[in-house]
Design a protein around this nucleic acid. Sequence first.
DNA 1: CTATGGCACGGATT
DNA 2: AATCCGTGCCATAG
Length: 462
Amino acid sequence: MLQTHYQVTTTTTSAHLAQTMTLLSLTNTDLLQKVETELANNPALELVEEHRCPMCKRILPPNRICPVCSQPKNSERDEAIVFISPREDFYTYSGEYFDNEPEEQIIYEGIDLPTFVLRQIATELDPKDRIIVAYILTNLDEDGFLTINSLEIARFHHRLPSEIEALIKRLQRCEPIGVCSKNPREALKIQAEILSETVKLPKLTLEIIEKGLDLISHHHYAELAKQLNTNPNQIELAAKFITDNLNPFPARAYWGDVRNPTEIDNHVYHNPDILIYHLNDNPENPLVVEIILPIRGTLRVNPLFKQAFKTIEAEKAEEWKGDLEKATLLIKCIQQRSNALRLLMEKLVVMQKQFILNGEKSLRSITRAEIAKELSMHESTISRAVSGKAIQLPNKRIVPMAMFFDRSLAYRSLVKEIVEKEEMPLSDNEIQEILAQKGINIARRTVAKYRSMEGILPAHLR
DNA sequence: CTATGGCACGGATT
DNA sequence: AATCCGTGCCATAG
């Protein structure tokens, strides 16, 4: 008797642990998907009606007030406000909410990329074009690239290819700029064109995008310079402009090393899982850390199902019991995931506050193990929580959460700064000496590595 | 001869 | 156990 009881408890807890683990490592995009399939398949699970904060329109759990809007004005607290925020539109490219009344018959659940784009131009479109635009938008891949060509669309809708092209052109000018392009090159081109209407592009920018993307991504500036009959400096200038201002994957978050997009690993990250910003975007205000929960409303076990379960006949009871357990388990695990993320972020904002405010130079090198120790969690828990997640910083840059644990980033940006300020091209050895004067002792070989990681040419080519 | 990049090794981190 | 990272050694280009 005692033994069976023991058996049962251990199996349930280990299942519980296993699921918490897997949920923890999921990004919001994946979690959303998981929850949606569970909702569809499990009658015991229920999504209760949403409660919106009247101020900011965030969806809140029932009977809760919005932690951000309700924050007292006299908040003299130094620490950041960290909270879990159930939001449907976790595609927060600009952080804006759209309150327009829903457009005609095309209704999407929640806000995803297609909806996000559609709402920008729906009102100014000819009604007969809306269907086509919606059709185009449903054929985007995860990076916002078009997976079908304009001819197919034209044939499908009995329209002229040129009309379709024109529509696509208009779509490409929507946020995220360059969406609906065929490939990174086209996306870059659009972005460059739009930018050129307000700023002056470096010479050859368009030519490089057209012909030299491969070479640029491998830093073969000299070779490209030869092809285009110019000098490497010109190329480098343009390359810097491209990497600083343009994004080859418009619908994807900035990720790792933009310069070698081919090497971005298989997980595709688009949306920030966590937002960090100043309250009301005023730098005077305290930091707010918003851990986004991509669920529209609150998940709970359906009380009707629970009631019905008591009166059900024995043969179905087995199946129902399973559903019931699965539902409670999922809810618990999601709570645990949120909780772990919250604890982690509370520590992380304090430790990396300087980095969040002042940029890469001020990144403290901390390890996941240290945090794990402080929170008395297992290292692997932290690892899972960090891996694959994206964070939006106050400057609107979306970076991998792993960046908070990058040991060399601070040094790398120092190297970059030194090179930018140099009068004569400094050799790696000289850079190493400058760093040594600042109390940073790293090997010459390492300086070289950092330099190339930052995409900076060797001294004799500068 | 100097500056730099490739390779590989060992220790740290995950 | 697997992976990442800093570093030393050596070849090569300039």
